[in-house]
């Protein structure tokens, strides 16, 4: 009788153990799929970008626009233009009306694109080292990477925030050699907005975009 009871208890223990084991392991598996770490997000992005850049089928000049489109869609998966524009404008966003903000976003994205996308396109076999992520707060993380170019290391840190809507990690800043992109643009925009105004800022940005596309034309003619 007692032995039988004990057997039952043992069986219960074993089955409980199995249930717990599978329950926790299963939830771990599901979570690992749903919630990639910030480091994984950046690693994925950088590797996909490098793949596009290394792709020999996309290297010819007539494929240039296609390649740009691919890079653009990759980057915009992680970096949300709307969110970054708000961060860059900070409290001065209150001086914009809806149309002006729309225009600002357009110009800002053109500016960033013609500056940074062309730099990415000049890729020539640099290596990227991924270092560990650092949590800045429960919803903010920094992923440190290093770009190795002729033996010199350029530290590039990606800052990510966990989006409240769906818990996805999205980028909100890039810090190159200790200089934050968002803070740098913010200081420039603040100064113009404080001393002049929204329309002047938009005019300045328009001018900048024009100059950049002119330079790009000269460069593509030379090469």
């Amino acid at each position: 009788m007692r032995a039988y009871k004990l057997l039952g208890l043992k069986r219960l223990a074993v089955s409980l153990l199995l249930v717990f084991f599978f329950a926790s392991f299963g939830s771990w598996l599901v979570l690992a799929k749903v919630d990639p770490t910030p480091k994984k997000v950046i690693e994925n992005l950088v590797n996909q970008v490098l793949e596009v850049l290394k792709d020999p089928n996309l290297k010819s000049p007539d494929k240039r626009e296609l390649r740009r489109e691919k890079l653009r869609s990759l980057v915009s998966q992680i970096f949300d233009l709307d969110d970054i524009s708000r961060r860059v404008l900070g409290r001065y966003i209150r001086r914009f009306n809806k149309e002006q903000f729309q225009r600002f976003k357009e110009l800002f994205s053109k500016m960033l694109e013609s500056i940074y996308l062309s730099r990415i396109e000049n890729y020539s076999g640099e290596k990227v080292i991924f270092e560990d992520q650092r949590m800045l707060s429960p919803t903010k993380a920094a992923v440190l990477t290093k770009i190795v170019k002729d033996g010199q290391e350029i530290p590039v840190e990606y800052r990510l925030i966990k989006r409240k809507k769906d818990g996805k990690w999205i980028g909100y800043d890039v810090v190159i050699e200790g200089v934050s992109l968002v803070k740098n643009y913010r200081s420039q925009f603040y100064q113009v907005l404080k001393k002049k105004g929204v329309d002047e800022l938009l005019a300045m940005m328009e001018q900048k975009v024009k100059n950049l596309s002119k330079q790009a034309d000269i460069k593509s003619k030379n090469s």
Partner: peptide, 14 residues
């Protein structure tokens, strides 16, 4: 867009 401010801010952060 304003290199003077940009350099100042970069210097400060660096």
């Amino acid at each position: 867009i304003d290199p003077y401010v940009s350099i100042r801010q970069a210097y400060y952060q660096y």
